[in-house]
Computed example of a mutant assay.
Amino acid sequence: MDIAFSPCPNDTFIFHAWVNGLIPDAPKLKVTYADIDITNTLAEKADGPDILKISYASLPWVHESYGLLPCGGALGRGCGPLILTKQGQENVSLAGKSIAVPSERSTAFLLFRLWIAKHVPEGIKEIHVLPFHEIMPAIADGKMDAGLVIHEARFTYPSYGLRCVVDLGDWWEKDTSLPIPLGAIIAKKTLDLTKIAQWIRASLAHAQKHPRSSQKYVMDHAQELDWNVAQEHIDLYVNSFSHDLGKEGYQAIHALLTRAMKEGFIPTVDYKSLLIK
Rank of each mutant, 00 (worst) to 15 (best):
K28P: 01
A260S: 08
K97R: 15
R163P: 06
T268F: 09
Q89K: 15
I234L: 06
L84C: 15
Q215W: 11
I51G: 05
K195P: 04
K189W: 02
S65N: 13
A153F: 01
V238N: 09
D167V: 02
E152W: 08
L75P: 00
G96V: 09
H254F: 04
K262F: 15
V165K: 05
S159P: 02
L257I: 12
T85R: 09
A153D: 13
N20W: 08
S203D: 06
G73K: 01
F5A: 08
P102V: 01
S55L: 12
L245I: 13
P267A: 10
V62E: 07
I23K: 06
P158T: 10
I196E: 00
H221A: 05
N40C: 10
P24N: 11
H16I: 01
L191W: 00
A187E: 07
K30F: 03
I253M: 03
V120C: 13
E224P: 00
H128K: 14
K118D: 13
L42H: 03
T39M: 11
E104P: 05
K188S: 12
I14P: 04
Y250R: 14
A184N: 00
W18R: 07
L275G: 02
D167P: 04
K30P: 11
L94G: 01
L191C: 07
H63C: 15
K262V: 08
P81I: 02
K262M: 15
A34M: 09
Y160W: 14
R201M: 08
R105V: 06
V120P: 05
K247R: 13
H221E: 11
W171C: 08
H206T: 02
A207Y: 00
G78H: 08
F241G: 00
P131D: 14
D235C: 08
L69P: 00
I83H: 03
I83M: 04
I83K: 09
Y33P: 02
G161E: 12
N40A: 04
E248F: 05
V31A: 13
D235W: 06
L148I: 03
D25Y: 05
T268W: 11
I36P: 00
G21T: 05
W18Q: 03
G67K: 00
S58K: 15
D170E: 15
R77S: 10
I180P: 03
K209E: 14
G72W: 06
T258Q: 14
C8H: 14
E64L: 11
E134I: 10
L82D: 02
A222E: 09
W171K: 12
I99H: 07
T41W: 05
F265M: 07
G169T: 03
I23D: 13
I266Y: 01
G88V: 02
M136E: 14
H16M: 04
V229G: 11
I200H: 01
